[in-house]
Design a protein around this nucleic acid. Sequence first.
DNA 1: ACGGATATGTGCGTTTCCGCACATAGTCTA
DNA 2: TAGACTATGTGCGGAAACGCACATATCCGT
Lengths: 245, 245
Amino acid sequence: MAILKTAPHTPTQNYLLAALPHDVFDSLAPHLELIALPLGNVLYESGCQLQHVYFPTTAILSLHYVMENGATAEIAGVGNEGVLGVSLLMGGNTTPSRAIVQTGGWGYRMPARLMMDEFNRAGSVMRLLLRYIQALMTQISQTAVCNRHHSVEQQLCRWLLLTLDRLPSHELTMTQELISTMLGVRREGITEAAGKLQRAGVISYRRGHIAVLDRAGLEQRTCECYGVVKTETLRLLGDARKLNI
Amino acid sequence: MAILKTAPHTPTQNYLLAALPHDVFDSLAPHLELIALPLGNVLYESGCQLQHVYFPTTAILSLHYVMENGATAEIAGVGNEGVLGVSLLMGGNTTPSRAIVQTGGWGYRMPARLMMDEFNRAGSVMRLLLRYIQALMTQISQTAVCNRHHSVEQQLCRWLLLTLDRLPSHELTMTQELISTMLGVRREGITEAAGKLQRAGVISYRRGHIAVLDRAGLEQRTCECYGVVKTETLRLLGDARKLNI
DNA sequence: ACGGATATGTGCGTTTCCGCACATAGTCTA
DNA sequence: TAGACTATGTGCGGAAACGCACATATCCGT
């Protein structure tokens, strides 16, 4: 909680906003609104029209699919590397998935209309966002692959690493129950996998808080999916500023 | 094979090409090259630069991920509703996935450069393709969900239905081995599920050929994922012409 | 018509995960 | 500080899918 109060927030904590050309950023900045994103908030319901796009800074959002029987599965996460609401830009307006806050924090939002107008100028903003969309597609694809072939423990490691990459610290506020709904597995399965990681000294946790003690250990235990997503995200977005797109 | 010889091919057998405004279509048509797409052909290798974009007409393409240990998983399929090579348009040039021909047939290809130029005009072609990209994302997302929660039999039904929707007939040339690599499961698992469907009179098959006898039966046995993909694809692309985008 | 290649069928032990039930422990509030 | 609530630990039977081995069936070329 301390971090939420003490850290001064600027839009440039979001990677995409930071990567915008100065003139574009200056024109959009007045319309960026800093908002708190508390854990569990539903930002976007399946099939509903989105009014804003969201640029997380310290928060992490999660794109879910909720099945008819109530079971859930995470499709992708959105942290300060990205933006929530790309389906607006693609002309679909809605998606069949839901967006909720997975890690409480802050972010900026902007009226959807403004973002669409800027996108439709078909300039550097569009090119940047298209690269982000491709990174998002890679993440979704790898979720599909991982769901097919990898163990709960490997998936937990992947998920922890991806979450960690979007946070400033090595700790996350997160119950095992919540992780299980993200991964779409049993809570007990997470208890077991997390216990194994704890006994190995890779993480330590207590009632809703996880601290990563040995990041390399996580990387060793996860599947290739983490690396694919990470590498591809960096390739597509990592040097966007240098490319001056 | 008969169908390949007898059917006259026109670019408008591909939905996206058919949905283009007349003037755009006329300008692109001279650069469309009809090509045979035999089963198993690799059109696009992971991480390699694509030289052409492909518009299938009677063929069906498959986007795969091949893991380090050789295991595979299908991420999405591309039939006459779509186009292969969208990562070019998004600025990434490559993807970590591979594209192969899943059902032999025909399609048109076009030099990548031309497609990119047309896309970058940021007109109706771009808007159409963005909608397609969103439909593709829905398909990938649903693959992830389905891999997490549904049985091999349900997934087989979903896969058969999606394939059927892209073909003119009720028969497909397809070994169980091939289906198993698509779904990323054991071949024996497909044998078992297909046998069950056959005993129920839903399909009949013999050595590499599957005939769907009872489409409604398939729809009854599949999971909600098929409907989500189908509905969303129709929503995004089905009335593209009416929308005059 | 035959032989080789390939596709499909089947059985079996093992692994992984699920669903359920319930015990224990940490945290928060009155 | 007592009690309620929530998070985590654990055990068990069962279902689903896996890996492997091998039998059988079908097709195709010569």
